[in-house]
Amino acid sequence: MRISRLLVIIAVGIFLLGIPYFVTSSYVMHIIIFSGIYIIFALSYDIVVGYLGMLSLGHPAFYGVGGYTSVLLVMKLDVPYVIALPIAGILALIVALIVGFPALRLSYHSFAIVTLAFTLIMRAVWINWVSLTNGPMGIPGVPRPTIDIPFLGAVHIETLTDYYYLILILVIITCLFIYFMIHSRVGRALLSIRENEVLAETLGVNAFKYRMIAFAIGAFFAGLAGSFTAHYITFMGPEFTDFYYITMLLIMVILGGSGTIHGVIIGAIAFTFIPEYLRITPEFRDVIYGFVLVMTIIFMPEGIGGKINEIIYKRRVRTG
């Protein structure tokens, strides 16, 4: 059992490392890189929606905070990318703490609406603070990342392959962190709050504190995803906080299976590829998205990941 597991991990590892060598189309490579971005974005969203059980509609704002932070740091203050990237995440985390402090005390429904209001406020600021963000035009010409590695010198991230390996590292870090978090005492406490808040409190769990932590960690990874995106497409603009992104995240997380890592990864990859190959107008695509969302909620609220877990559980029970 142990060895077969190790072999699977090695095989998957080789496959992931080898992708740039057998994917020849640069278009497909581009979508694969975007899949990586959405995996981070959706997994970080799932911390809040799936594990915390709160419906936040403010996640794109943290993505934007991360993007603008690292772009402005790199372009205006000449901060190296390796430093700007974590600062982007940390600033998103700090903003989440500031927003969460009042918002996480509210009822579930109020929380959803207040976080949505937060997204709209941030968006209005980015559009109107022209001297800093260049307004609705956005910031073009964002430099490609240069990473200084000790003893190896500066590594310039330029080709799709370079970007692929960078996002692969970020995705692995995100997955591992979330996996460890969910299977740690912190994850156990989060789960207990979602399942029964009064009982969790009775057992000594400070529900508010854990909500703040989960909300802030989610924002941190959204900030990383935002930063990477801006430096990948070499552009940052307010459209990254479009309502469209909330819809897409919700579909990735809900259809993929909220509260499951594998499900959300599947959801994120599927819904990065599907719209690219659906050659239709964005509006028509959104109609289909809305339809998929409603159908998923009515017929399969546990998502693909939940279904997979169910099958595994049943098989385990059957084989004893």
């Binding site: 419906l55 819809t247 919700l250 809900i254 959104d286 109609v287 998205y289 809305g290 339809f291 969302l293 409603v294 909620i297 009515i298």
Partner: peptide, 8 residues
């Protein structure tokens, strides 16, 4: 979420 989908 369902009403959000309908709205979209």
């Amino acid at each position: 979420l369902s009403t959000l989908g309908i709205s979209i």
